[in-house]
Structure formats: C-alpha cells, structure tokens
Design a protein around this nucleic acid. Structure first.
Length: 879
RNA sequence: AGGCACGUAGCUCAGGGGGAGAGCACUACCCUGACACGGUAGGGGUCAAGAGUUCAAAUCUCUUCGUGCCUACCA
C-alpha cells in the first residue's frame, strides 16, 4: 500500500468503475423503499461553483447512505435550459462575429443554441462527476427535451383551459438589455444613491403651482394626472382642478386617491400609469389615459416629443436642465432608495406597460400552503416555513412570457381574421373560434422556471404514466439553497400538487450559502471565488466533500477557507494510514480466528462503534450533516486510532496467537465499519481501501451501512476503559508537564483506594497497555502502596498514580504543578459546595442532579486531599 | 419600513438550563516498527452589554449595541 492516498488516480478510476457497473442506477433487487432525489438542475451555461459543490455533496451523501441502507435509490440528474442566460451567451458569440440574432433569424438562432449546448452543455455535468455524484446519468434530462417540452405544453394547455393562465395588459418588469419581461422575483432590489426632485406643476386656471416630488423626472412626459390624498387638508380644494404638465404643456387633472402618503415629499404624486405599477393601479381606478414614453430599448419614444430617441438617463438630465431654466425645479434632495435590477444582467429595470401571459397563482398557492401546514411536506430547518408562508400569502400573478427565442414557445395561436386565441398541444389547423386558417403562433417563450416547476414529475416521465412516476413520486427530499425557495421550490409545490395530486417531495432541506472566509458572498466581480475544481485538484475530492459536510450546520452559512480543507485532508491521510496498519497485519495468511477472545479494549471499541453508528444514523436522518461528519471524525481519529490501534499493537506484535487473531478480527471489523460509515462522505478513499480489505467483494457502494445491533452493547467496558484511560492520561500529564522525553522510561506506582478491588483487577489486566502507552517501566498496581521517594503524583478518582522521576524531577516544578492541580480542584469544589449549601438547589433540583453533584464533590475533595498530602510530602523532604 | 438569523478561545465555528467544546493557529518535548498530512502534553474565553425568570442562565424572556440576509409599489 502506498504511503499516502493518491486522489487523482483513485477518483478517476473508481468513478468510471461505478458508472460502468451501473451502480448509480436504482437497484431493482433492493428490498427497501424507494428513495428519490431530483437534482436542482444547474444551468447549462454554468460552471461548478461552491454552491453547487455543497448542494450536490449533500445530496450524494444522502443517496449513498440510503443506498447502503437498502433503499431503492434514484438520484435524477439533468440541466435546465436557462432561457435568458443561454440566449445571452449565444448572442454574445454572434456579436463577436459582427452579427446578431435578428440577422440570422429565429430558426437558425435556435439551431445555434442547440449547437452551443451540444458543445458545452456537458461541462457542468462532468464537473458533478468529478465531485463523485452518484446520479443515474442514464436518465439525465434536459428541460428542452422532447418529453419535458411535451409536459410543458400539456401543463400550459390545461392551466389555460382551467382559466389559470390568461393574457393581459400589466405593468411588468422590463429588462431593456435582455429585451424581455421578468417575473417580480427576478428583479433584484438594491439601494442606490439617487435624488428626489421637487418639480412645480403650475395650476391651469390660477396662479401658483403644485409641487410634486419624484425620483424619475423623465417619466413626467407620460404623466396623465397628479394625485393627492383627499384627507390631506393642504390639498382638499385642489382636487378636481387642473395643472399644466411642464415641458409637455398639457393640461392634466388633480385627482384624490388614498394611496398617496401625505407625509412623503410634498404629498402630491405625479401619475404615470404606463411606467409605474402603483400609478397603473391608480390610473385604472380613475380611468386615466396610459401614455408610454419609453420603448423596449430604454429610449424615449416618439410620444416624448423632442426627447424622442434619447436614452432614458440622458433624457433625465436634459429634462432637469429644461425644468431648471424654466424655473420649475424647486429643489433637489439627495435620496437613497431601492432600484430594481435584472437578475441576469444587472441592468436597471424599466417598469412598463405590456401585454403578457400570466399564471393565476392564488388558488395554486393556497393548496401549496396547506400542504406544508399539514406536514405533507416538511421544511428543514423549520424557520424557512415562515418565509415560505409569507411569500405564498402575498403571492401575485406570475408573468410567464418572455420575449426571447430560446425556450418553450407558448402554444397559443392568434387568428388573423378574428383575432381570437387558440391554445393547443399541437399547431391547430383552424381557429377554434371562427375556423379561420390564417393562424400565427405566439412569439414569446415561457419562463425557464415554468418548466423547472414541473421537474419532479416531468423528469420521471409525466404526462405518461410511467413506472418511475409510480415508484418515485413523491420524491423523498429536495436539497437546495434558500435563494431559490421562491423561484423554484414554491412553484414545484404548486405545480406538483395541481397536476399530480400530491406534493413533489416529502422533505425540503434548505442548506446555507457558501461564502468566503470573510463571510462575503462569492462572486466573480469581487474576485473572492474559490473554484471547487482547484480545491479538488489541490486537496482531493474526499477532503473537500468532508469539509463541506462538516461545515454545513443548519441555518448557518458556510465560510470556506483553504486551511479548513487542508485540515480535513489530514483526516483522509489518517484514515489511509490507519488502514495501512490494519491491512498490513491482515494480508499475511493467518489461521482463522478459532477461539476469539474479547479483552477490554476490544469490548470497548466494539461498543463504541455501535454507539457511533447509531449517532450518525440519527444525525443523517435529521439532515445534521455536520454532526454526522464530526461524530465520524472524532471516532476514527481520537478513539480508533489514538486508543484502539495503539492498544492493538500489543496483541499484533506479541506472542499470544489467540490474542493476535482476535485483535486482527476486531481491527478488521472496526475498519470495515469505519470505511462504510465514511463512505457517503468520502467515497473515493473508502472504496480504494475497501478493495484492499480481505473478505470483501464488490464495491463498497453495495455494502450495507453498519447497523448498531451488529456490535456490542457493553456499558461496563466503557467505564472500565475510562479508568484505564484516566490512569494513562495522568501519567502522560506528569511526563508532559515535567518535559520528560519519551525516550526516558519512568517507574509508575498505582495505588488503589481501600475496597476498590474491581478497579485493581481492571488495571492489573491492562497493565501492559498502561506500560506501553505511557512508556512506563514495570508499573505496579495494588491497594495501599506507598508513594515512592522522588515521585510526582496525580489523582484519578480514587486512584493515586505515582510517577517516579528520580533524577529527572525538579521539586520546585513538581510543587508548582501540584499547586496548580489543587487550585483547579478547589475551583470545582467551591462550585459544587455552593450548590450543595443552597437550600433551593437541594429541594428543587432533580434528585439525579443533586446526587451527581454530591458524588462529584466527594470525589473532588478526596482527590484534593491526596494532592495536598503530596504537596506536604514534597515540602517536608525539601527541608 | 417590516421580518429572519447571528455575535462563544487569535481565526472558522459546534453546543444549548446543572462540570466552557472542536478544527486550525500557538508553546514545549518527541522522526516510538500506519501516519511529522504524525504523537504527547500545555497556554488561551466575566460565551457582545444590561436587566429579568429560575435553586441554577453561555443556554429561556426582554432591552440595547453590532453584523449579515430576506421581503416591500412611499413617489
């Protein structure tokens, strides 16, 4: 076996082996229940980032764990077509060639996107492979596949027929760069320093003016009213009068509407119904005219008079100049407020009036809310439930049409003769209203999230009734970050319940976001991105995965630093080397263990492994990945390696053949359990060692997860081992504090308190371990032994451990050490004594706690007495 | 403007009413036949501040301060 684990070689080799052996496919022979996770589809345009790495590591841990537990596991992979993002990428390529999509035409453009996807779409998929993901790649799906596209059409048609999809005029969020509408949640609000402009609108029929405050003076070209609050005393009389819209010189009315907040600005609000959602609502209430003055490029249009053709921001400047020169700009206040930006390209959103397709979400949201309230789907951690409910109860209709080409084209046809709409699965031959033959399909495509919302059932074959759908729907758990709770989770809930009659997943596990070491969100523009591929190359995938799992505490962000990953690489190395020792002792032909014996160390480790297995299982079932990882780490390193393996050496290298073969047996059993326990977290190194372990065949992926019941349940062994460890610790502490080099052996005398014969027996039985673990020379154990001259003493419960340091011992140092230990005990004794003298404590605390405190007080006092005696002893011989 | 988290060792974080924990970093002594990516020992914290509940508070409640995030149509 090599001196260290070589990740690069092992990773490539084992991944290929697993995939080629079909181990990622659901095992038809598995006796357990189905277990299914659908992957949150990464963008085809994307590359693996830390968020993906965490997300998919956690899913892989669950899938591997459940597979080992005997479940029939399907991890359904795939990608989504990322309409706007992908189109942007291909358009950029075209621009580089000096052309654009309009020049190449819709059909050719879509071909180009497909070509692009064939070339680069597998990129992120291969990165997931690199991460070790055990997805069933034979079932990989893509939202633009024929099957999934059929599901999209089916859903659209049915929702339309049910009146849950409609087409209408609304103010929508328009991205002038992407040239498309966006849903409300696709707009990112960011605080920006801006200004509040106070503009005078002169009265039409008298002197004076009304002052309005606005952040967007350029929209005044589309103003059709000024509104004040009818309750506002200042303006009671002006409602119903008219003002002259500056620059445009048009007469517009002053209206009263309770929406207006009298406390803000001047209490007078200019109304631009075609460019502001609130103004739109107010305009509707008052029957105001809608005047659109900004076009799809974010430029002023022909209705903007001589500003026509100007960019919206240039126009703002010009208008302010003009207002200024006309004496109509009263003042400018600095003002900071939230401005909407496109979540894909960060361009400032232009709210404008447009005809779009909408999903009526209220009824869908209601069912989705009830499902979580009733516990049909549980959200972990539960704090996210509140967020989910909040969003569901304030939900607004979902704008699903996008003015781009890459995506599912809306299956609606307009009749050129009567103007009616025909919605159908396939191109209709005639208008369903007038029978006209001259039909034209809607140009818009659907929001990518529309198809993603169907993901949990469309990937399983819906609308066909497939075996997969029967077996795996509802899926077991959805693992995702909270940033797409609304975009995706909520919408899957709505669609799943509506079309499948059941929730799409039993559990939703929301994990944290990965941030940099300072806690900042990683982003390319900040330059603080740690590339997972680099990390895997540098430290190995197993170390990386283990780090992610160990840091993935519920409800907390993962702050990743390379130091941390390096620390866990050491763990991989530790596991490797522990295995090296065990395997080195197994591979020689040894006679089978005929008369197995169970010394204390074996009883202890075999009990501990069972307990640890139980704890890990519980942690994983509750999605406490960090706990599971830490439990594992702690056990492997600080129990198995630090203690058991060290003690096992005695048996391995000694002459007692029964002990030797028994020890080998225990080492093998525990290592086998350790490898299987670690496998979900560190699939490569565990498989690599598993292959070398005798008596195993086949992949560790197919091996059963250890069961608690397979191991011992010997609580006495835990206690007894505790005593041995305590004595060893005491000797080591003295050595350490006295700086006795390991090469120097010491005499150890262990004095047992009167009547503690059982402790005596245990220590005598394990004296050889104490000897080797402490580098002691002929340690002796008995009741009532005298403290040897020139020895340092430590107290463990009722046991006094004397370490003879003749010649090595510095009396002053030893006195200092004893004083320190006494002080430590004093502190604890005081605490206990205070409790015990408290009447309230004795009366009200639970009896268990009281007696525990009493016991501790006694044992501490006893220990203190003994230390004190030692201190006196040193003081006397010093004189 | 509301809401939700979070302030614990130098750093990153677990824990969560009765003895302050881990990893890394640090100090000392060690290449002991798996591992120096290692071993053994050690130093280091009024658990943000204040008040309350309780026999008992790092832990529960409230207030304050600080930090993040999410939601929102006050122009």
């Amino acid at each position: 076996m090599a001196k260290g684990f070589e990740p690069e070689k092992a990773e490539a080799r084992w991944y290929r082996y697993w995939e080629e052996s079909g181990l990622f496919r659901p095992d038809e022979a598995a006796k357990g229940n189905p277990y299914c996770i659908v992957i949150p589809p990464p963008n085809v345009t994307g590359t693996l980032h830390m968020g993906h790495a965490l997300n998919n590591t956690l899913q892989d841990i669950l899938c591997r764990y459940k597979r080992m537990k005997g479940f029939k596991v399907l991890w359904q992979p795939g990608t989504d077509h990322a309409g706007i993002a992908t189109q942007n990428v291909v358009e950029k390529n075209l621009a580089a060639q000096g052309t654009d999509r309009h020049a190449v035409g819709r059909e050719r453009f879509i071909e180009l996107v497909w070509e692009w996807r064939r070339k680069y779409g597998g990129f992120i998929i291969n990165q997931l492979r690199r991460l070790g993901c055990s997805c069933d790649w034979s079932r990989e799906r893509f939202t633009m596949d024929e099957g999934l596209s059929r599901a999209v059409r089916e859903v659209f048609v049915r929702l339309y027929d049910e009146g849950l999809i409609y087409r209408g005029d609304h103010i929508i969020n328009w991205c002038p760069r992407c040239h498309t509408a966006l849903a409300d949640i696709e707009v990112e609000h960011e605080d920006r320093d801006s200004a509040l402009y106070w503009v005078r609108y002169p009265f039409a029929d008298r002197d004076g003016y009304l002052v309005v405050a606005t952040t967007r003076p350029e929209t005044m070209l589309g103003d059709t009213a000024v509104a004040v609050n009818p309750e506002d005393d200042r303006y009671g009389s002006v409602v119903g009068s008219n003002v002259v819209l500056p620059i445009v010189n048009k007469i517009i009315p002053v209206i009263g509407d309770s929406y207006v907040d009298p406390a803000f600005g001047t209490g007078a609000l200019k109304i631009t119904p075609a460019h502001d959602p609130n103004d739109f609502e107010i305009g509707r209430r008052h029957g105001l005219e809608l005047i659109k003055v900004i076009d799809d490029d974010g430029r002023m249009n022909e209705l903007a008079g001589h500003y026509a053709g100007m960019d919206r921001f240039d126009c703002r400047k010009k208008i302010l100049d003009d207002l200024q020169s006309q004496g109509l700009l009263e003042k400018v206040d600095p003002y900071r407020h939230a401005v909407g930006h496109c979540y894909r390209c960060k361009t400032m959103i232009e709210p404008l009036l447009s005809k779009q397709w909408f999903v009526r979400t209220k009824p869908l949201a209601k069912a989705a809310t009830i499902a979580v309230k009733d516990g049909k789907t549980r959200i972990y951690p539960a704090t996210w439930e509140a967020v989910y409910f909040e969003w569901m109860s304030n939900i607004r209709d979902w704008c699903v049409s996008r003015q781009i080409w890459w995506g599912h084209r809306i299956p609606a046809w307009y009749c050129k003769s009567c103007g009616e709409i025909t919605v159908a699965m396939v191109a209709p031959s005639a208008c369903k209203s007038c029978g006209g033959k001259d039909l034209e399909q809607e140009n818009d495509v659907l929001d990518t999230w529309f198809s993603s919302a169907l993901w949990p059932f469309s990937t399983l074959g819906w609308p066909d009734r497939t075996v997969e759908l029967d077996t795996f729907y509802p899926t077991s758990v959805l693992v995702t970050g909270f940033d797409i709770l609304f975009f995706w989770v909520a919408r899957m809930m709505m669609m799943g319940i509506h079309f499948m009659g059941d929730v799409p997943f039993r559990d939703v596990y929301i994990h944290a976001l990965v941030r940099d070491a300072e806690g900042k969100k990683m982003s390319k523009s900040k330059g603080n991105v740690i590339d997972p591929l680099d990390v895997m190359g540098k430290f190995g995938t197993d170390a990386f995965r283990f780090t992610l799992a160990a840091l993935a505490a519920q409800g907390r962000d993962v702050k990743l630093s390379e130091d941390r990953i390096e620390g866990y690489r050491h763990f991989v190395n530790k596991l490797w080397n522990a295995s090296r020792l065990v395997l080195g002792n197994l591979d020689e032909e040894s006679p089978p263990c005929e008369s197995r014996i169970y010394p204390l160390a074996d009883r202890w480790i075999l009990t501990r492994v069972g307990l640890v297995v139980g704890e890990m299982e519980k942690a994983l079932d509750e999605y406490r990945f960090n706990d599971a990882a830490n439990i594992c780490y702690q056990f492997v390193w600080h129990e198995f390696c630090d203690w058991y393996i060290e003690m096992a050496k005695k048996g391995l290298y000694g002459n007692d053949t029964t002990l030797r073969s028994s020890t080998r047996e225990t080492l093998k059993e525990v290592l086998s359990a350790v490898l299987r326990m670690c496998h979900p977290f560190m699939p490569f190194v565990t498989e690599d060692i598993w292959e070398k372990l005798p008596y195993t065949n086949g992949s560790i992926m197919k091996a059963p997860f250890p069961e608690r019941s397979e191991y011992l349940d010997d609580s006495e062994a835990l206690n007894e081992m505790g005593t041995v460890m305590g004595v060893v610790g005491a000797v080591r502490a003295i050595r350490g504090e006295m700086n006795i080099p390991p090469s120097k052996k010491v005499l150890v005398v262990i004095d047992i308190h009167e009547g503690e014969d059982s402790i005596k027996t245990i220590l005598i039985e394990n004296i050889h371990h104490i000897e080797s673990l402490t580098k002691a020379e002929n340690p002796v154990v008995d009741i009532g032994l005298k403290k040897p001259a020139g020895s340092a003493t430590s107290v463990v419960g009722s046991v006094q451990v004397h370490v003879v340091l003749k010649g090595l011992l510095d009396f002053d140092e030893e006195k200092k050490r004893l004083q320190k230990e006494i002080a430590k005990k004093d502190k604890d004794i005081d605490l206990m004594a205070k409790k015990l003298s408290n009447k309230g404590f004795i009366e009200k605390a639970s009896p268990d706690v009281v007696s525990e405190v009493k016991e501790r007080h006694e044992s501490l006092s006893l220990g203190r007495e003994k230390l004190l005696k030692n201190l006196h002893f040193f003081e006397s011989i010093n004189e």
